[in-house]
Each structure stands twice: as structure tokens, then as C-alpha cells.
């Protein structure tokens, strides 16, 4: 190999390496990193939204309702489940677990919340649902017809599930809708 060739080759090789580094970093950044960032947790019981809606004929508000003082109750308490599930309603393993591990010993089910905001955040469901007339699915996953409770992806760094809304999302929407973005509108 002549010196010139060597030079050329090494130049090409250099650029190739640049591309390798570039592509590798993109791969790590876009594909590997998100995998590494989250751990997966499973709900204590696989809740079947579809069956409650379709077969039990329940509406969303039966479980996800506003309290009298305007605060939002979120997930139902065990007492609500126990109304129907005092004994297993079917053959599934989850059903048996529900009754034996939670309903009978009167232990609240430790549901993992997909989108619960941290302590220092006040989120008014009333403001968004009643006033701004937003749909639940504007922020939350659509659970209609869902037969399986999806696993919860938890950010290893922050400790929050990936569906928890970030502040910039709130800010952007507030700015867009011309709603106050003052800190104390949401923080406490």
C-alpha cells in the first residue's frame, strides 16, 4: 500500500468510524436507553375493564367519581370491590386472589397508579373535566375494552411511572389554552 492510499483509507475509515459512533449513539439514545431507564411492575391483580363494563354493565363513574367536596376519588376502595366480589365471580386465578388475599382479610388492594402526581403537585380533575370539559382520554390511556391491566413502567431515576404527566406538558397546554401558569396553580 502506498502512503497516499494509506492516508485515503484511513480518512475513509475515520469517517466510517464517525458514522459508526453516530449511529451507535443514536441507537443507544433512542432504543437502549429507554429500555434501561424503566423497570416494569405488575398490578397485584389483573383488572379487566372490559368485563366490568360489558358484562357487569358498570359505568366509569361507578368507580372513578368525584367526591362531594369536588376532589377526585381516583381508584375505588376495596369496599366497592367487595360489594360484588364477596366471593369469587369466576374461575380465574386473579378472582380467587382478590377474595382470599384482599376481600376476606379486608386489606386494601395495593394498586400501582399509572399517573399519580407527586406530593408537591395539586391536580384538579374538576378543573379539567368539569370546567375545561376535557375527556379522560386526553391524558389517560383509554381503558375501554381493555381486558388486561398493562404493566407499569417505572422510571428508575425519578421513581415515577412513565405515564405520569410532566410539568412541561401542563405548562404547554395551559399556555395554549390561555390558562394561568402561575406556580401555585398546581404546586403545593
Amino acid at each position: 500500500m502506498t502512503g497516499e492510499n494509506k492516508q485515503q483509507n484511513s480518512g475513509l475509515l475515520g469517517w466510517a468510524l464517525f458514522v459508526v459512533g453516530f449511529a451507535g449513539a443514536l441507537f443507544v439514545g433512542w432504543i437502549v436507553f429507554p429500555q434501561l431507564l424503566y423497570s416494569t411492575k405488575y398490578q397485584p391483580i389483573n383488572y379487566n375493564h372490559a368485563i366490568h363494563q360489558e358484562e357487569a354493565g358498570m359505568s366509569c363513574e361507578d368507580c372513578h367519581f368525584f367526591r362531594e367536596d369536588g376532589t377526585y376519588a381516583g381508584k375505588p376502595k376495596l369496599a366497592a370491590c367487595a360489594e360484588c366480589h364477596s366471593e369469587p365471580q369466576g374461575e380465574t386465578e386473579d378472582e380467587a386472589k382478590l377474595v382470599s388475599e384482599y376481600v376476606e382479610p379486608e386489606k386494601e388492594i395495593p394498586w400501582i397508579s399509572y399517573s399519580r402526581q407527586p406530593d408537591n403537585v395539586f391536580f384538579s380533575h374538576a378543573a379539567h373535566v368539569k370546567m375545561a370539559e376535557m375527556d379522560c382520554t386526553d391524558c389517560h390511556r383509554d381503558v375501554e375494552g381493555q381486558t388486561k391491566a398493562p404493566p407499569v413502567k417505572i422510571n428508575r431515576l425519578t421513581g415515577y411511572p412513565n405515564e405520569v404527566m410532566k410539568m412541561y406538558v401542563c405548562e404547554d397546554c395551559h399556555a395554549q389554552e390561555n390558562v394561568s401558569n402561575a406556580c401555585d396553580v398546581c404546586h403545593k
Partner: peptide, 27 residues
Amino acid sequence: RAFVKLIAGGVGGTLLSPLPWKMADDT
């Protein structure tokens, strides 16, 4: 020289990926 190019590519790629920004935000 080649090594520097590899690193430069890596840095460029990283900056164009969500990694540093997401990391900063999560941190």
C-alpha cells in the same frame, strides 16, 4: 485521529438522541 472521529460521532449522535435531555430532566 480515528478515535477522535468515533467519539465525535458518538457525541453528535447522543446529542440528537433523547438521552442527555431526558437524563437532565429526570435528574
